[in-house]
Design a protein around this nucleic acid. Structure first.
Length: 287
DNA sequence: ATTATGTCCTGCCAGC
DNA sequence: TGCTGGCAGGACATAA
């Protein structure tokens, strides 16, 4: 559930606290945390030990720490992943999956992940105009990065034959948007989540993209959204954008525009929150 | 090829 | 009290 604003908050924290430092010891406490790394836990740990972290970068919900011009440590937080920087003497929580110490002593870095959907891996960097980790070459640019092209997005979106929310959640079309900000952006744009993408006109696509950028930017200013202690920055603090949420998690509460109670629908074994009046269901809804 | 669905995983909580 | 089932859902493998 960490989406672009939460991941960017973590990236900025890593830039501040660990970039420039050299890794001493890497301990993989749960092999699942590095399941995507072909070298396995031991290979992963050996490859990272002794390396200096150069830059902290991000695309969508992925972030990575570059080690040199063609290699990086790639991270995805999944549902509940945290990258926590702190005093090496603090107690080891039961959900710490990877423990990284540095040659200059404190603080250390702990990849903590209750639900184990997140992962870390070593990887190579590739690209021409935008260098990204090779394993995420299929992830589309996110709407706040320079190479994001609104015209390309509009063309690809309207070529789809699916519902607009499903499209927003497809990271190979536009990255960084998850269930929370998809619902929020659709409310701002006054579009129903099941609206067929091929019926969106130019103005609606423009409104949608403005709404996506708006909610992501506002959430980033607030340090991200948090419903509980799972979504935190590198020093364990929560953001407060949840106070600004208009529909997500607010079933039954009045819409702030028209006072109609917010509706919750089941969608892809998840939830879709919307205002029945501001976002009427289209006749040709695409489930 | 594109689009849809199933799967992974743990903690919490309502309901019985 | 203690169990069960539902829910939270990102990204990938697999199916259609």
């Amino acid at each position: 559930m960490p989406e672009l604003p939460e991941v960017e908050t973590v990236r900025a924290g890593l830039e501040r606290h660990v970039v420039g430092r050299t890794v001493a010891v890497v301990q993989v406490l749960h092999p699942r945390a590095v399941r995507r790394d072909p070298a396995g836990p031991a290979g992963f740990a050996a490859a990272l030990a002794g390396r200096t972290l150069k830059r902290a970068e991000r695309r969508g919900k992925y972030l990575w720490l570059t080690l040199d011009d063609d290699e990086a440590l790639l991270a995805h937080l999944g549902m509940s992943g945290q990258l926590l920087v702190g005093d090496p003497d603090r107690p080891l929580s039961p959900h710490v999956r990877v423990w990284i110490t540095f040659t200059d002593g404190s603080p250390d870095l702990r990849f903590t992940d209750q639900r184990t959907f997140g992962h870390l891996m070593m990887c190579s960097l590739r690209g021409d105009d935008r260098v990204v980790p090779e394993p995420i070459a299929h992830i589309a640019p996110d709407p706040v990065e320079a190479v994001f092209d609104p015209a390309v997005f509009a063309a690809r979106l309207t070529r789809r034959r699916t519902g607009v929310k499903r499209a927003l959640l497809d990271q190979s079309l536009i990255s960084g948007v998850g269930n929370i900000y998809a619902d929020e952006a659709l409310w701002h744009a006054r579009l129903h989540w099941a609206r067929p993408t091929e019926t969106l006109n130019r103005g609606e696509v423009s409104r949608l993209l403005d709404a996506v950028r708006g909610v992501l930017t506002e959430a980033l200013k607030a340090g991200g959204t948090s419903f509980d202690s799972l979504y935190v920055n590198v020093t364990g603090e929560s953001g407060y954008f949840d106070r600004s949420l208009q529909v997500y998690g607010r079933a039954g509460e009045p819409c702030s525009r028209c006072a109609t109670p917010i509706r919750r629908d089941s969608f892809m074994n998840r939830s879709a929150y919307s205002c029945p009046r501001c976002q009427p269901r289209p006749r040709n809804a695409h489930w």
